[in-house]
Nucleic acid binder design. Structure first.
Lengths: 210, 210
DNA sequence: GCCTTTTTTGGCATGCCGTGCCATAAATTC
DNA sequence: GAATTTATGGCACGGCATGCCAAAAAAGGC
């Protein structure tokens, strides 16, 4: 094989490239013309591939944009998952947002806001976005389970993972529609603080209410 | 007009009847044969109508089941919305679940559990279920805004409405897959208690933590 | 370099979804 | 009972999504 570690075989690189081209083309077309009036044929043409090849990269039309947000959500969850349970969630949050340079974050922010606005406008895309978040639950659950001191399958951990992910989703959408963007991480902290998700621990007795 | 108040014109009754027949037929077929292998033609035939008429009642195939859960979710939100802000959420919860008789609740519970399990199995149906919850947010937001002491469009109220609705969703799904069902309202109370959604009030200062 | 093997891509056909259009049947109204 | 209104069904059509097969391109062996 001609590929060294981390240089995945030039063909795979080309595949990633194509996947991104599809996503970019779809994002532009959806933003310009709208989702329903854009056919898969249009996206494929704009990305320089045939319709049949499009479906080799995307399971469905509504998945064309997923590469654009799946990675960011995945990264956030990764950081949360690998941080020790003693630290509050907001610390892991800072670590996640601190990796990129300021100017790169600004450029990403503009693109991200536009993307989130498109996602929020088209119901099926928004659902896809939420679904991507739900799929992260399995990866987030173990980390939060240790924080909450409850087993992974318990109602409490399910509630917690859902609450954390939805807090992020709601916050991002709120941020995407603000006139003055501000720093997303600040809003995130405000959200976690309001819902007091940092302090959540399992009740002493799960079933004894009084 | 031949219809008195609350007896909406016999034709409308027939429409509701048809809508329920569609939903029941779809629920049975989806549970038996699966979602993808069931065509809209099948549902229409089982409901005794033509394909074209199906689409006059349902915007899409994935909406065939919505009448079965939209009303229950709507009822819960109604009760929460009309209860005064001083009472904790769990009080309104008890009021909502206390309306039906015990034996009727048992029959409904079995049907509801089966329905939720189908919804959870088929991604597109689950998304539809979540979307129905999201549409309730606008109706829930005013009630929770007065409880939280924050404006309707604020980040805090958005977080709160999302958290409450998703807590219900997660709890119902947890309940649907339990071996021993138990009382749903008890799980609901446990969920609200764990997330401390009863006690949520707007922070004195949005940014000062202590 | 050339040939073979493997993978990727494109074109075609097909089935289902969802909708516009129009004719028929049913109901409401007079 | 006749006219008007409304619900229903049949048909055609475009778009989505997939299976199948052949052409093209890449990878590997000589």
């Amino acid at each position: 094989m001609a590929a060294a570690r981390g240089r995945p075989s030039l063909t795979d690189q080309r595949r990633l490239q194509t996947q991104l081209e599809i996503a970019e083309a779809a994002a532009t077309l959806f933003a310009d013309r709208g989702y329903d009036t854009t056919t898969v044929e249009d996206i494929a043409s704009a990305a320089g591939i045939s319709l049949r090849t499009f479906y080799r990269y995307c399971p469905a039309k509504e998945d064309a944009l997923t590469p654009l947000f799946a990675s960011s959500v995945g990264h956030l969850v990764d950081v949360l998952a690998e941080h020790p349970a003693e630290e509050p969630l907001s610390t892991a949050l800072d670590a996640s947002f601190g990796t990129a340079t300021a100017e790169r974050r600004l450029a990403d922010a503009a693109r991200a806001r536009r993307l989130v606005r498109v996602l929020g406008t088209v119901p099926v895309l928004k659902m896809r976005w939420l679904a991507a978040g739900r799929e992260m639950q399995e990866r987030l659950a173990p980390a939060l389970a240790s924080r909450a001191g409850a087993p992974v399958g318990s109602l409490e951990v399910r509630l917690l993972t859902t609450a954390v992910l939805d807090a992020f989703t709601v916050t991002m959408e709120h941020w995407a529609w603000q006139d003055e963007p501000g720093e997303l991480v600040d809003l995130m902290r405000r959200a976690l603080s309001f819902l007091r998700l940092d302090e959540l621990r399992a009740q002493p007795e799960p079933s004894t209410d009084r």
